[in-house]
């Protein structure tokens, strides 16, 4: 009997990678290949009558980034600005809730947790719809204002409405990681800081917030990425008057300008991912500095 080779398998044991095969095939066929395809597509020559004309070009990218009146450049900038605003607002609004949820000993904790989760069970369309009923020109708020003899406010068809609704849509994605991070912080650390003479504000900025950075980071990245790619809410609450990269890309698709749409979509993803990477670097340094 020779020494068994390390790769030999006992008889009757099926190769384990068979377990991985279905997901790998699916992801390869429905993610990897289509994304490579869209990359190739973005270098095609656009046409309004068929998917694309023969030949390859950088034209889609130069048009998007070096267009003389900077239309798409500004659009990209607006999209990122909107995403940043939403991320920041989500962080500010989510933090107290996450803190409360992480620390409460109330017997309602389960119910409160379910309340945070439950909006996720309701589709984005429906949640946007709720905001439309509230914010529309003849919506609940403006009708009430009118009834009380006040001038109606422009609440929808502008960035305000879009940001408000998106903050609502993405809030759970901020609360959950924050809560996880805060739960991992020993409450005695806060007490220790208090005993050392730090006031509540100091305790927050010097102890709680730095220690919750991992949660802040995951929450912010998640919300930022989701905001960059949001389509339904801007389309419904912006109703053609708030433009983002995604609404523009869909419009281009309707006009059959696929290669150009592909280029725009890829630019948005790359810029979004780059922003995330920079942010992760920065906050990584911050975390190390405070650790």
């Amino acid at each position: 009997m020779t020494a068994p080779s390390p790769t030999a398998r006992p008889p009757g044991v099926r190769p384990r990678w068979l377990l991985a095969a279905p997901v790998l095939v699916t992801v390869a066929a429905l993610i990897v290949v289509p994304y490579v395809n869209i990359l190739v597509m973005s270098f095609r020559v656009p046409s309004t009558t068929k998917p694309y004309l023969p030949g390859f070009t950088f034209g889609n990218y130069t048009k998007a980034l070096a267009d003389p009146d900077f239309f798409y450049f500004e659009l990209l900038f607006d999209t990122l600005r909107l995403a940043l605003t939403i991320t920041f607002l989500c962080l500010v609004v989510a933090y107290p809730v996450a803190f409360h949820l992480a620390r409460t000993t109330s017997r309602w904790k389960g119910v409160l947790y379910a309340l945070v989760l439950s909006p996720l069970l309701v589709g984005v369309v429906i949640r946007s719809f709720g905001w439309i009923i509230l914010l529309a020109n003849n919506g609940l708020i403006n009708q009430s204002l009118k009834a009380w003899g006040m001038a109606p406010l422009p609440l929808m068809y502008n960035e305000f409405g879009v940001v408000l609704a998106l903050v609502h849509v993405f809030l759970p994605f901020m609360i959950l990681p924050l809560m996880g991070a805060i739960q991992g912080i020993d409450p005695r650390l806060e007490e220790a800081a208090r005993s050392l003479g730090a006031g509540p504000a100091k305790v927050f900025w010097r102890v709680l917030f730095p220690l919750s950075m991992p949660g802040v980071q995951s929450g912010c990245i998640l919300v930022f990425v989701l905001s960059c790619g949001a389509y339904v809410t801007p389309a419904l609450l912006g109703a053609g008057r708030v433009h983002t990269m995604t609404t523009e890309v869909i419009t281009l698709l309707d006009q059959f300008l696929w290669p150009f749409g592909a280029a725009l979509a890829l630019i948005l993803s790359v810029v979004g991912l780059a922003a995330v990477a920079i942010y992760a670097r920065l906050s990584g340094r911050l975390m190390r500095g405070l650790a």
């Binding site: 998917p51 979509a265 993803s269």
Partner: peptide, 11 residues
């Protein structure tokens, strides 16, 4: 981004 995946799949 889901919308990008949708576009990629459509093409």
């Amino acid at each position: 981004p889901e919308i990008l995946t949708a576009i990629a799949l459509l093409f």
